[in-house]
Nucleic acid binder design. Structure first.
Length: 570
RNA sequence: GCGUCUAUAGCUCAAUUGGAUAGAGCGUCAGCCUCCGGAGUUGAAGAUAUAGGUUCAAAUCCUAUUAGGCGCCCCA
């Protein structure tokens, strides 16, 4: 319908002055929020009045005079400063019902993505502890965005980057070993500052002890402590042997990863791919990219370290790739990782990061473009932190101190649907406050129940219809019997759905979809309260059933993208 | 200090991306079940941080100010 109107305006403009060329993209047509302004309106006259050397209202008048008739359009009016308002013939508005009933779960899908390959990397929390509430937002966001992109015809791969190399993992291993020694000898005290302190460390240590007894025991473990954590790690490695240290490391990482996978499953999230940082070191990729960067004059040596010239690429300063002690930095493996993404032929690479990483964007973007050579595009989306509150008091979320609320706890207490909806209903670049007490104590606060209730009501009507020995059958002629304002409101919402799908994917804003669902549900509830669906008149009954059946399809389609259930009964 | 994100109703969030009278939920107040599920519905009160600017039009864009989050390691 929008396109029809755009076309009409374009043709009219052509008649007014055939030398001026206004492209169809410049013509904006939008839905009216107030029915008295018609169904669609365009601001074209105000936008281009200067091009035509006339006042907005005059140009609008001219457009109106030159616009040709169309069977779908009842009348056209000029209003306010120069809006052109289009009133649509009622019957053609209801035609979307027919389209939805025919397309069902395909309604809303499009082919804009042209099957392009997209890699979307999200969560990627370090395997040093369980996922906490802070990770939940990025998880829900990434998963929903993937579904949205799929709905728009992209070929999406969801990937989790596992940081299973580097110092943090060594610290994790050390933390486990320390607890392990405490288990064996309770006199061994845990008092080193920088180790991981969560309860799960005990669990891992206990499992290792249960399965392998004192294999990893070193005499006088205490004595290897050092002020520098690096030395501490080194001492333990040397005395335990590199091999055994790695065994403990692998067991710990696997334990935590299994836990993370379990939590993600509870959230309804499935990753297509788990990419190990360590694989980049093992297969030589890391060495190759450092060599490549060096040969292409993107690096230099200073203070016995190898530096990446990231300042030239927009970063605040240059960054170290290889440290003085010949260890690689996190950045260097990350560059290798992104080089790998490019080599897997993704047209678009999306990273979803916490907003605390924003300073990191320019350097990885710069490195990415060195390798992508324009063939692939990197998009980094930052998700703002969720501040966690328990009532009035703020809860800290430090993995290190072990003081955090796990995502699993939240999912179990609040439920998957409510949690996902809560995360997604807010714009991702908006800081948000998450009050656990509120979420737990009063779950009817969450609009997800409101939407599910609308769906359950529709299902309930169809159940009742069946119990009465009746059946719903559809015929296009029924649509003529829909005439109430509430029916029109619903149908307008329904025809807007494909646009919401398009827009929320393009702009990476799933909250547009959650808002839409809320609005649709509201129209449905309002209608339900005012009108009886199951009336005696066959024509009217079937017409109304067709309307709510179409609404049901849209609710179900959108809920699948958001990742929530739409129960028939609640 | 530099960079970056943000500021909308008492609270938590929206606003079709520059559009017409800024919308919801919670909370407050007043109504609606002999009727398809009251987890619902109808209404009332209540808001664009401050000061300028840009134009037909500003919550939205620009500048300054104020307040807050985050980032500024050879950490990951």
């Amino acid at each position: 319908m929008k396109d029809i109107i755009k076309d009409l305006i374009k043709k009219s403009l052509k008649k007014i002055d055939k030398h001026k060329n206004i492209s169809i993209e410049d013509i904006e047509v939008s839905l009216c929020k107030d029915n008295k302004f018609g169904d669609f309106s365009s601001n074209i006259a105000m936008k281009f009045s200067h091009v035509y050397n006339s006042s907005p209202r005059d140009l609008a008048k001219k457009i109106l005079e030159n616009i040709s008739d169309n069977k779908n359009i009842l009348k056209v009016e000029i209003a306010g400063p120069g809006f052109i308002n289009f009133f649509i013939v009622k019957v053609s508005q209801f035609e979307v019902i027919e389209k939805i009933l025919k397309e069902q779960n395909l309604f809303g899908k499009n082919n804009l993505g042209l099957n392009q390959k997209v890699l979307i990397e999200f969560v990627s929390a370090n395997p040093t502890g369980p996922l906490h509430v802070g990770h939940g937002r990025g998880a829900a966001f990434g998963d929903c965005l993937s579904s949205l992109l799929q709905e728009n015809g992209y070929d999406v791969t969801k990937e989790y980057y596992v940081n299973d190399a580097g110092k943090q993992i060594d610290i994790l291993t050390l933390s486990v070993l320390q607890r392990y020694h405490e288990l064996i000898d309770s006199n061994s005290k845990f008092e080193y500052e920088n180790l991981y302190k969560g309860d799960y460390i005990w669990d891992i240590a206990a499992e290792i002890h249960r399965n392998l007894s004192d294999t990893y025991m070193i005499e006088d473990f205490e004595n290897y402590k050092s002020i520098s954590i690096d030395d501490y790690i080194l001492n333990v490695k040397n005395n335990l042997s590199e091999k055994k240290f790695k065994e403990v490391k692998d067991t710990s990482v696997k334990f935590i990863l299994d836990d993370i996978k379990k939590t993600l499953k509870l959230s309804g999230i499935n990753f297509d791919s788990w990419f190990l940082e360590s694989s980049l070191i093992d297969n030589g990729d890391l060495k190759d990219i450092i060599k490549y960067l060096h040969e292409n004059n993107n690096t230099y040596e200073k203070d016995n370290a190898l530096w990446f010239k990231s300042q030239e690429l927009g970063d605040e300063k240059d960054r170290v790739l290889v440290k003085e002690n010949k260890d690689h930095t996190y950045l260097s493996t990350d560059i290798a990782y992104h080089k790998n993404k490019i080599s897997r032929n993704f047209n678009r690479v999306i990273n979803i990061w916490g907003a605390d990483h924003h300073g990191y964007v320019s350097r990885i973007n710069g490195a990415f473009n060195i390798f992508a050579k324009g063939k692939s595009q990197l998009i980094v989306l930052l998700v703002q932190f969720a501040n966690l509150y328990r009532g009035k008091s703020k809860v800290s979320m430090s993995t290190r101190s072990g003081d955090f609320v796990t995502l699993e706890e939240l999912l179990k207490e609040v439920g998957k649907d409510a949690t996902r909806f809560f995360y997604l209903a807010r714009k991702s670049d908006q800081h948000m406050d998450f009050d656990i007490e509120l979420a737990k104590s009063n779950d009817s606060n969450n609009p997800v129940y409101y939407i599910q209730y609308a769906h359950a009501r529709i299902c309930s009507i169809f159940r009742l219809l069946k119990e009465n020995g009746n059946e719903f059958h559809y015929n296009k002629k029924f649509l003529e019997f829909l005439s109430e304002e509430e029916e029109l409101n619903i149908v307008k919402k329904l025809s807007f759905y494909p646009e919401v799908i398009k827009k929320s994917a393009e702009k990476h804003e799933p909250h547009l979809l959650t808002n839409y669902m809320r609005e649709l549900a509201q129209e449905i509830h309002s209608y339900y309260n005012k009108f009886q669906i199951l009336v005696d008149d066959d024509n009217l009954r079937n017409a109304r059933l067709a309307l709510i059946e179409a609404s049901k399809h849209v609710l179900v389609n959108s809920s699948k993208i958001i990742g929530i259930n739409m129960p028939d009964k609640m």
